[in-house]
Design a protein around this nucleic acid. Structure first.
Lengths: 209, 209
DNA sequence: CCGGCTGGATAGTACTACTATCCAATCATT
DNA sequence: AATGATTGGATAGTAGTACTATCCAGCCGG
């Protein structure tokens, strides 16, 4: 198909598709002449992926590019699919190394992960996000003990178990990418359900009737 | 204290503090003269709140302003603390009303919430986020049944129960604001733990050793 | 052979969250 | 009283992100 059809079928303007090609999110069409190129279903599929990551997952174009290139790297095995993706999504947080609050938070994160026995790399960006959250909670006057984080960790573990249950040894790269996008989307599901559950719980506890 | 001291103690540049005042996130200091104003601990506290919501919660300045003004409104009771905040954070998603995929997703969300028996308003923005996520999952080729969403919903409910357990009848507005900031921070904790759990689960399932 | 579509390049836009500069007033210090 | 730094308030500028618009030949289908 030509770019106009790709545009129509994906619902994205032609200019945006060109932009994604320029940015390395979408491969070029196969050129048949100087001013002609062919696109196929894989391009459409990729655009759906990009849209899910951008609009739902709220990832930046740069993060999406990192994810795509990471998961297209044949050196990345299935077993570190999520690790590689998490690293590609990155921290977008820079942690000061000298701040004592930060140091303490990092140690608390390390201790929690050790206690849970989770196999995660020391560089996992989510560690930094977690540490940042702990620092913020402290500054807000809350002191989150490891015990308080337990229920969150257990919920997260159960969901991850459920999700990885869908992975098979023979899962293809394309499938893996789709699953990864799905897991990013599920993050939003989790947050949305969390907010709705809060509304419900707070109404239930204090509400009328 | 003067603005320079507030800057020093909060770690934020004076210009940024002025900006937050202009934007209505932070109240003005009490003016003692044309070029002098006094700030106190409540300003410092508010700055910590803003930082937590901005840097950790990744909320926009506009969303933070909406949250603050909503929770300062005496018409908002404790029982809809989280509802009001969720509404203030907003959808930042505009849903097409004519798309059949969207209509189906909305109905699925409504059905799920009804089945769960959650007391949430029909306008809750998280409904839209959820519907958007379901549409994206469909387009990615996954068909999330209500049953598949169950574990997520249950995890979210348990966490919300735990969080609202901290609320008391005599909780002050200032405390409520802090708790709300904490809950936004906890969203990030949840997502970070989710990513770490995925990395662990995927390594455990396919990894070496 | 001609009008509309195309690839490729370049430039411009809208938005967000700051950041910088300027000014006159005022305070602390000399 | 003079002076130098600080302040509130206003205005303007910046950097980054994600597009969006325009332009220009070249080509294809009619």
């Amino acid at each position: 198909m030509r770019i106009s059809e790709l545009s129509e079928r994906s619902g994205l303007p032609v200019q945006t598709i060109k932009f994604y090609i320029r940015e390395g999110l979408l491969p070029k069409g196969t050129a048949s002449a100087a001013t002609r190129a062919e696109y196929d279903e894989t391009h459409l599929e990729r655009l759906r992926l990009i849209r899910a990551l951008r609009e739902v997952g709220d990832l930046s174009v740069a993060a999406i590019r990192r994810i795509i290139t990471a998961l297209e790297d044949p050196g990345v095995g299935l077993h570190d699919l999520f690790g590689a993706a998490a690293y590609a999504i990155g921290p977008r947080v820079d942690a000061p190394d000298d701040d004592p609050d930060w140091r303490a938070a990092r140690e608390q994160v390390d201790a929690l992960l050790e206690e849970l026995g989770w196999r995660v790399t020391g560089q996992a960006p989510a560690r930094t996000v977690l540490a940042q959250a702990l620092v913020a909670l402290r500054r807000l006057g809350f002191t989150p003990s490891p015990a308080a984080l337990r229920p969150y960790a257990e919920a997260a573990a159960a969901l991850a178990e459920h999700e990885t249950g869908l992975l098979r040894e023979d899962t293809t790269r394309a499938q893996a990418l789709r699953m990864l996008a799905a897991s990013v989307v599920y993050d939003q599901v989790l947050v949305a359900l969390h907010r709705l559950a809060q509304e419900d719980a707070s109404a239930r506890r204090f509400g009328p009737g």
